[in-house]
């Protein structure tokens, strides 16, 4: 039985915030490791948690649910969660779910760090 594919996630401390950069697709299989990565970063209570989605080609509702959980945890920890780098397809799913007004969304990591 082949094993499900995994997602590459980079975590970088940029002084003014922590940047989490997933790469690939965030679907059914990838949502759990993405959730674990976000949880680990959130537990450190950074001032800003920036999720750079520029390298995410596809996302479905397990990915969205993971980000909603991260947002709820960030609010509890007084962390500012910012999403950036959404391509048109990923942005479309936020709009269909009407979550584009719930999240703070910026264009780039630099804009997010300066916000």
């Amino acid at each position: 039985m082949p094993e499900p594919s995994s997602i590459n996630i980079r975590v970088e401390d940029r002084g003014n915030g922590t940047v989490v950069t997933p790469e690939g697709e965030i679907g059914y299989e990838e949502a759990p490791p993405f959730r674990n990565a976000l949880r680990r970063v959130s537990e450190q209570r950074p001032k800003r948690l920036i999720v750079d989605l520029a390298r995410v080609e596809y996302m479905n509702t397990p990915g969205l649910a993971t980000l909603v959980e991260a947002l709820q945890m960030a609010k509890k920890n007084s962390t500012r969660l910012i999403l950036c780098g959404l391509n048109d397809k990923v942005r479309a799913i936020f709009e269909i779910a009407r979550l584009h007004k719930v999240f703070e969304i910026k264009g780039t990591v630099d804009e997010s760090l300066a916000a």
Partner: peptide
Amino acid sequence: KPGGLGVHI
């Protein structure tokens, strides 16, 4: 809240 979005989409 997380979940329950699939059918809506």
